[in-house]
Simulated assay, not measured.
Amino acid sequence: MSNAAALTPVHLEHVDWHDPRAVELRARMDAEMSAVYSAGREPDPDDVVAARDAALLVHPEKVRATLLVVDPDGTALGHAALYDRGGEWEVKRVIVDREQRGRGIGRLLMAGVEADARAAGAPRMILQTGDRQPDAVALYEKTGWTGIPTYEPYVTTIPQSICFEKVLVGAEQHAG
């Protein structure tokens, strides 16, 4: 990446789940994660693949917010969504364009979803990532997320899951 690219200002934009830029970033994420998780592993049986796909499926009507980080010309550089997982606020589909990593885009996305969840009164957020995504794990830890036991539907469908929570409601708010 050039120095000029590193200095290009970016901003958060709330978009519809079906925004073509969001769809494109999610497709790139799917391709990247497929390559990461298939490398060195035998292909999973069809029933395992189907269960994993069902666990990862996002129902658009349950998306509370879709955020993009965009550059001045509107090119999407990163994506994250807030999802209603049975009353829990789950952060899903966090991706930063491969060429744009290391610019703070992931931090900006995480701050954006946190601000949205706080504004809506969410007590906490949860998320799931995988054991072959050390950069994602590092981002979550640096931005104040705490490891938690793997939660459903990932317990049996994606056993290599690493799960986190970020508590948004402090003890002082519970005491009142």
Rank of each mutant, 00 (worst) to 15 (best):
Y83H: 05
V69F: 03
D71L: 00
R93V: 01
Y83P: 04
D73N: 10
K62E: 03
H79P: 01
R103L: 06
R64N: 01
A76F: 00
V94Q: 09
E90F: 01
V96S: 05
K62N: 14
R64P: 01
V63F: 11
A76V: 02
H79N: 15
D84Q: 13
Q100G: 07
L67S: 14
T75N: 05
A76I: 03
G106S: 09
W89S: 13
G102K: 11
L82N: 03
G78Q: 08
D97W: 04
V70I: 03
A80D: 13
Q100W: 09
Q100L: 08
G106T: 05
W89N: 12
R64Y: 03
G104P: 07
A80K: 12
L109E: 13
E88C: 04
K92P: 02
K62Y: 02
P60V: 09
K62R: 15
D97I: 02
R64W: 02
V96W: 04
R98W: 01
L77G: 08
T75K: 10
A76D: 06
A81W: 08
G74S: 15
V69E: 10
W89I: 02
G87R: 04
G74K: 08
E88M: 09
A80L: 11
R98N: 01
E61W: 00
G104T: 11
P72S: 00
G87C: 08
G102N: 05
E61I: 07
L109M: 04
T66F: 14
G102D: 11
R101N: 04
L108A: 05
D71E: 15
Q100N: 11
A65E: 15
V96D: 11
L67I: 14
R103Q: 12
R85I: 01
Q100T: 05
A80R: 05
